[in-house]
Design a protein around this nucleic acid. Structure first.
Lengths: 136, 136
DNA sequence: GTAGATGCAAAGTATTTGCGACAAG
DNA sequence: CTTGTCGCAAATACTTTGCATCTAC
């Protein structure tokens, strides 16, 4: 099975270069939400000649093509994650930085209602919860 | 009546300099959510000798003291607003950049529940809705 | 073959900081 | 007085870009 990001590139007419394949592969295999530096380090292990400029250009391109999502969480650099069908929001552990993905349809519906109440059609949203792990 | 930001500074032991008073005043009178450049322009009209470094230092200090809130809305620079008792979230018009503040207790409660479901105590959150104005 | 991608280094933005002069408490 | 703040310019952090070369299609 081909890497899903590569398939998306073809579908969207994005030229598949060696560098982009590597970046796609690394992103696919990352379960955390790496920032550009993290990504550059991981990518460099596979091909040390890839420049950071290419990494920046590629994440931007992938983001504009709807392949990756960019997140600006509080107090940290921009982080990226692969975008799949299932939309989700994030719960961030303020102590460790760990990120939990979640979906809550009830909240989603309410958001739509709030937007409508003010005469808007909701086109996008951002919901981030910041929490501290409870002792159990 | 003294400006509420000045009172907060005293309460929190933040030294009240002339520059801080001016920045406090400008923020109090701003109903939009200015970024540092906007703020610097407005502040300079009152005292042209204030440096941008002081504006940066002051918004950071005020933010850490819980006097101002910093927002990183999609695709724009950090913007600031005065923090009052009433918490609220933002609905951003993606065409005009206009910002509507809203409160929805139902959503707030659900957020707390979601965090708890994963074993976390909610300490903070960010909710931004991005919408397009409907024709009416 | 040609349009678009890459690497490199230089240029942009946004923000922070070292330091001597200065002002608030 | 003494500690913290200010203005200035230099430094830093992150990201983008011009250009000559190279590569996918």
């Amino acid at each position: 099975m081909p890497i899903s990001i590569e398939k998306k590139c073809k579908d969207k007419g994005v030229k598949l270069t060696e560098q982009r394949k590597i970046i796609a592969k690394v992103m696919s295999e990352s379960n955390d939400h790496p920032n550009v530096d993290d990504l550059y380090v991981r990518v460099s292990k596979i091909d040390s000649k890839i420049s950071i400029a290419t990494v920046y250009r590629t994440v931007k391109l992938f983001q504009e093509s709807g392949i990756l999502a960019k997140h600006d969480f509080k107090g940290s650099k921009a982080r990226y994650e692969e975008l799949n069908e299932g939309h989700h929001d994030h719960l961030i552990d303020v102590k460790t930085g760990e990120i939990i993905e979640f979906v809550d349809n009830e909240i989603e519906d309410l958001q739509k209602k709030v937007a409508e109440k003010y005469g808007y059609e909701l086109v996008d949203h951002k919901l981030e919860l910041y929490g501290i792990k409870k002792k159990s």
